[in-house]
Every structure is written in structure tokens, then in C-alpha cells.
């Protein structure tokens, strides 16, 4: 699971009002190089909850993202590279996403987050 996915997911357990951001508990992660696509980054930037991304990046030991970001920073190549790296090049293989409200753990195995709810959560 890459951090872009983390940024898109929330806990949808019944009764949870604000299930975002999920706390990332990473046990194992790898870094894989991905080709940088500037157009995609510019487009997706506006969809990203920056604080959640920076927080998730810190959870996997990447502290190079600023705490705040605005669209003007997309012109700086250095910023683009860091954004790209955090968003797409870190793969969480094992771990969990934890609901901030209820503490429900959504496991991540073999890179796949399991977002399916139990019978008493729907």
C-alpha cells in the first residue's frame, strides 16, 4: 500500500463520523523507484490531505515533507521529488491502518489493506 492510498481511505465502521486520517502502523515497508509524472502530481496534489500525507510519511521514517504545502510549491523540482517519493515510492507491505475514532485495526498484509468490515460494524 502506498501513501496515496492511505490518503484516500477512511474508516467506515458504522457510527464513525470522522474516520480520517487512519493512523498508519507500518511494520515492514520497501521503497521502489517509480517514474515521475509531473502532470499527475499537479493534478493529484489538489486531492491530497497534506497533513495526513506528511504524518503517514513520518510513520515510515520519511521526514522530508514540509508540514504545510500549497500549489505554488509544485514549481520547485525538489518539492516535486519529495512529494512523488512520499506519495508513490514507499510501499507498506505489512502493518495496519487504525481508525482514529474506534481503534479498529484494518490489517495490511502483502501490501493489501483489508478494508472489509465485520458483521457488527455495518
Amino acid at each position: 500500500m502506498r501513501l496515496l492510498t492511505h490518503n484516500m481511505l477512511s474508516s467506515n465502521v458504522k457510527g464513525v463520523v470522522d474516520g480520517f486520517p487512519l493512523r498508519l502502523e507500518a511494520e515492514k515497508w520497501v521503497e521502489k523507484e517509480v517514474e515521475l509524472n509531473v502532470d499527475f502530481l499537479r493534478h493529484i496534489f489538489h486531492k491530497i490531505e497534506w497533513k495526513a500525507l506528511a504524518g503517514a510519511a513520518r510513520a515510515v521514517g520519511y521526514g522530508e515533507l514540509p508540514d504545510e504545502a500549497d500549489a505554488a510549491m509544485l514549481d520547485a523540482e525538489d518539492f516535486l521529488r519529495r512529494f512523488h517519493h512520499a506519495l508513490l515510492e514507499i510501499h507498506v507491505e505489512e502493518g495496519a491502518l487504525v481508525c482514529p475514532d474506534t481503534g479498529r485495526r484494518f490489517p495490511i498484509n502483502k501490501g493489501i489493506p483489508n478494508m472489509l468490515l465485520n458483521e457488527d460494524e455495518i
Partner: peptide, 24 residues
């Protein structure tokens, strides 16, 4: 081919996308 950005297990009937996320 480049790997999918993400694969996840989810139910189409109850998608886990964060509420404010649209037009992505």
C-alpha cells in the same frame, strides 16, 4: 508494466473512501 498504484480489499457496496474525496 508499472504496478498498480494500489490494490485493496473493499466492498463496492460500502466503499472506504474518505468522505471529502471527490473527482479523483
Amino acid at each position: 508494466l508499472p504496478m498498480p498504484i494500489s490494490l485493496l480489499r473493499a466492498d463496492n457496496n460500502m466503499p472506504p473512501w474518505r468522505p471529502g474525496l471527490t473527482e479523483v
